[in-house]
Design a protein around this nucleic acid. Structure first.
Lengths: 111, 111
DNA sequence: CTTGACGCTACAAATTCCGTAGCTAACATG
DNA sequence: CATGTTAGCTACGGAATTTGTAGCGTCAAG
């Protein structure tokens, strides 16, 4: 497996590779929805607010090429690396929750 | 400040708000490039591979609405929340580096 | 043979993104 | 005042991406 040239990034810095895929619509969401085990293509589609199969398949291909997602007998699932990345997303989720509380409080005090 | 209805997400879960903005091209990158202090609009543009001002301004507006970025006397900078989120991105960066090493090694072992 | 679920593809329309050019305002120099 | 520079930001047309709907081929159950 190798990182080819990535849109707008000739440096090959890993974080840029990540930004490139995660910066596309539904990528983060797909990784997120796979957090509790495998989902079939259609179940994943439903979980992602009915994202079009075109985009879902495109993302899934990219995610598989990067070794973050794989297709098993029970549907799509995250690889070990994907799980690892998923934990960073869980961190993001925890942060987002406290951020929302903080933001709500800000708003109440006079927006 | 308040979260309006977000594209494709009626739940209002904070993580979805985050996915919505971060899932747009250049959002992650902008937050990332602001990690070492304020940058002017044009400096930020240069840092982001010359992203078009149209998109940069749109992202900056969204990021400001969410209270993650602010415009100070020396240019754009991350707010306290933005810095906080930035740390999660730094985690992502660290993970991406080890991931890249792992991935390179995988390729070498013939898997 | 029909039904249903599976992964996935085709294709046109809608949306978003892009690059280039240029605007207004502020500040410094002369 | 005239000039030059830098700032943030907008207009606009063309390119690229995303979307929605329909349907394909395969497989297992009834």
């Amino acid at each position: 497996m190798s990182f080819g040239p990535v849109r707008g990034s000739t440096t090959g810095r890993p974080i840029m590779v990540l930004f490139d895929i995660l910066g596309k619509r539904w990528s983060l969401r797909i990784l997120w929805e796979l957090r509790q085990g495998p989902l079939t293509f259609r179940a994943l589609r439903d979980a992602c607010d009915g994202v079009s199969p075109t985009v879902l398949n495109t993302r899934l291909k990219a995610l598989r090429d990067l070794g973050l997602v794989d297709l098993g007998p029970n549907g799509y699932l995250r690889t070990a690396d994907g799980e690892d990345l998923g934990e960073r997303l869980a961190d993001l989720d925890r942060w987002a929750n406290s951020w929302a509380e903080r933001t709500a409080t800000d708003g109440a005090t006079g927006n």
